[in-house]
Design a protein around this nucleic acid. Structure first.
Length: 475
RNA sequence: GGCGAGGUAGCAAAGUGGUAAUGCACUGGUCUGCAAAACCGGUAUGCGCGGGUUCAAUUCCCGCCCUCGCCUCCA
C-alpha cells in the first residue's frame, strides 16, 4: 500500500507512486545558513525525514534533494557585519546545521546543492525565461518575472488577482521597490543588480553584475537534480506564498514540465501556545535545549509527536513527557531482547524485509496514512500495554523485537539506555553508602537507612531492593 | 478584509455517524519497614458555541466565536 499524503495543491490526500516507476524524487527547501536553525525550522526537517523514512521502510527508494541557501539578503548582510567572506560565514553555519541534523538523526539528503555553486544554472534559466517572454530586464540591470505571463499564478496559494494586487499596493510603500521599474508590482526579482552594500558578493551576467533572486535558486537546483517533473516538493507552510508559487511560475515557464506533482507543507511549531519569536524569548535552538539537559532524541520525539498538518505546541512539559515515553519504549525493547535472547543489532534491510508485522501492523498502517505519527505512537504504546514480553516464546519475542525496530527506524527514534545498562562502574563511595544503607536496613534502623538513601539520591543514584538483596542504579 | 490550518481530559495529542487511542501528570491496589521499580486498575456522559439533518452527531450541514499562519524574499 503506497503512502497516502495530503497534497496542498489539490487539498486532498493522494497516494504517492513514483513518476518514473522506480525512485520517488523529492525536493525540500533547505535552511538559509546565516545563523543557528531553531527547533521550529527543525520541525519541518524532521517531518521530511519521517516522510523519507516511511517511504524507504515501505520499500520505496528515494532521491532526496535539499538545498542550502548560502547567498541572499541575510547571508550577505550578516557576513559583512561579521567581517567574514560569504563563503567562510556560510560554511560555519552550514557545519552547525549539519551537526544539529546528525544529532536529530536526520538522514542526510542524497544531494545537498548550494545556491552559490549553481549561479550559472540560474542565469541560464533566466535567459530561457526572457527568450520565452516570461521575464524582462530593467534599466538598472535587474531581471523580473512577469507574473501576468503565467495564467496559473496563484493556484497553489489560492490567491485571486484581487489579493495579489492588494499585496502589491502595500509593496508600493516600501522604498526598496521604488528603486526599480517593474512592469507590475506583483512581479518578482530573478536577478538583482549589484548594490554597493553587497560588498564583494556579485557575479557576472548578461544583464550586468549582480546576484540571483532567492526564489530562482530552488527552481534551478530542482531542475538540475530532479528534472522538469518530479514527485514531491516540500517546505514550511509559510513558503507556499510567495516562494513556492514563484518556483512553480519560473519552472513551468522555463521548461515543458509540470514541476512538482505533489506539495507537502509542514505547519509551524508554536511555543507556549503562541508563535516563536526572538522578542518573546521563546525561540529555542537545539543547543539551548541540550544546555538545559534534554537530549536531541527527546527533542525529535516532541517534534514528531503532533501531526505535521496541525499546529504543535512545544513546552518543557512536552520534553519531560518525551523522556518518559522514550524510556518506556526502551524498557519494552530491553524486555523483548531478554525474552528473545537476541543481542545483535539489526540491519536496515533485515528490518524492511520483516516489516511491522503482528502487533505493530496497525501502527505502520496508521503511519502510512498521511504520516500520522501521533496515531502510530498511540498504536505502538497500545501494543506495548497488551504485550507481555516474558510470556512470549523466543520466536515471538524476536519477531516483535524486529517489528519494534522497524517502527523505530521509520520514525527515526533512537532509544536511550535504560538504567540497568549503566551500572558498570559504581564509585567506591557510592557502593559504600549503599552497603551501609543495606546494613542499616538489615538492623531495622529505618531513619538511618532513609537518610543514606537520600544521600545516594542526591548523588544521582537509586537503590532498588530485590528479594535477594539490592541494586544500585544510576539515575 | 481575503485565503488556509486548527479548537478533544490538568498538559500534549490521535480518532470515529453508534459506548472517546496514546504519552505525561494525578490517583487506587499488589509488592515494600516506607519507598523506588514492576505489575494490575481509575480518571473527558464529554470532543469551542448555537442551530439543522439522522433512530443516533464530537464526527455531516449552516451560522457564530477564538487561536495560529500567509497576504511579495519567514521552516
Amino acid at each position: 500500500m503506497p503512502l497516502l499524503l495530503h497534497d496542498t495543491l489539490t487539498r486532498t490526500p493522494r497516494p504517492l507512486t513514483p513518476l518514473d516507476g522506480k525512485t520517488l524524487r523529492f525536493y525540500c527547501c533547505g535552511p538559509t545558513v546565516y545563523g543557528p536553525a531553531h527547533i521550529g525550522n527543525f520541525r519541518t526537517f524532521v517531518a521530511q525525514d519521517v516522510f523519507r523514512r516511511v517511504l524507504e521502510f515501505g520499500g520505496q527508494p528515494t532521491l532526496h534533494v535539499r538545498n542550502l541557501t548560502d547567498v541572499d539578503d541575510k547571508t550577505i548582510r550578516d557576513s559583512q557585519k561579521a567581517g567574514q567572506s560569504l563563503t567562510d560565514f556560510t560554511r560555519y553555519w552550514t557545519e552547525k546545521f549539519h551537526a544539529d541534523c546528525t544529532a536529530l538523526n536526520l538522514l542526510p539528503p542524497h544531494v545537498e546543492p548550494s545556491a552559490v555553486a549553481h549561479i550559472v544554472h540560474q542565469v541560464r534559466m533566466i535567459e530561457t525565461l526572457i527568450e520565452r517572454g516570461h521575464a524582462y530586464a530593467t534599466a538598472d540591470g535587474s531581471v523580473y518575472f512577469k507574473v501576468t505571463s503565467f495564467a496559473d499564478y496563484g493556484r497553489l496559494s489560492h490567491l485571486e488577482d484581487r489579493e495579489l494586487k492588494l499585496g502589491a499596493s502595500e509593496a508600493t510603500r516600501a522604498t526598496d521597490s521604488d528603486e526599480y521599474t517593474k512592469d507590475s508590482l506583483a512581479d518578482f526579482a530573478l536577478w538583482k543588480a549589484r548594490k554597493p552594500e553587497d560588498g564583494p558578493n556579485f557575479w557576472p551576467s548578461p544583464w550586468g553584475e549582480g546576484r540571483p533572486g532567492w526564489h530562482l535558486e530552488c527552481s534551478a537546483m530542482a531542475l538540475e537534480y530532479l528534472g522538469e517533473d518530479f514527485d514531491v516538493h516540500s517546505g514550511g507552510i509559510d513558503l507556499i506564498f510567495p516562494h513556492h508559487e514563484n518556483e512553480i511560475a519560473q519552472s513551468c515557464c522555463a521548461t515543458h514540465g509540470k514541476f512538482a506533482h505533489h506539495w507537502f507543507h509542514v505547519t509551524h511549531l508554536m511555543v507556549d501556545g503562541g508563535k516563536m519569536s526572538k522578542s518573546l524569548g521563546n525561540l529555542y535552538t537545539l543547543e539551548d535545549l541540550q544546555k538545559r539537559g534534554y537530549s536531541a532524541a527527546e527533542v525529535r520525539y516532541v517534534l514528531i509527536s503532533g501531526h505535521y498538518k496541525a499546529p504543535l505546541n512545544f513546552t518543557f512539559h512536552s520534553l519531560d513527557a518525551a523522556r518518559q515515553a522514550l524510556q518506556k519504549l526502551a524498557k519494552f525493547e530491553k524486555a523483548l531482547r531478554e525474552a528473545s535472547g537476541e543481542t545483535a543489532l539489526f540491519e536496515a534491510a533485515q528490518l524492511i524485509a520483516h516489516g511491522s508485522a503482528g502487533p505493530l501492523q496497525e501502527a505502520w498502517d496508521t503511519l502510512s496514512d498521511d504520516l500520522n505519527v501521533p496515531g502510530a505512537l498511540g498504536a505502538i504504546f497500545g501494543a506495548i500495554n497488551r504485550t507481555k514480553p516474558a510470556s512470549l516464546s523466543k520466536e515471538e519475542a524476536r519477531s516483535t523485537l524486529l517489528s519494534l525496530h522497524f517502527m523505530l527506524g521509520a520514525l527515526g527514534l533512537v532509544l536511550p539506555s535504560v538504567p540497568e545498562d549503566s551500572t558498570a562502574d559504581i564509585p567506591a563511595e557510592i557502593a559504600d553508602l549503599a552497603e551501609r544503607r543495606w546494613q542499616a536496613k538489615q538492623s531495622k534502623d529505618w531513619p538511618l537507612a532513609d537518610t543514606l538513601r537520600k544521600e545516594l539520591d542526591a548523588a544521582g543514584w537509586i537503590i532498588k531492593d530485590t528479594k535477594e538483596g539490592y541494586q544500585v542504579l544510576k539515575k
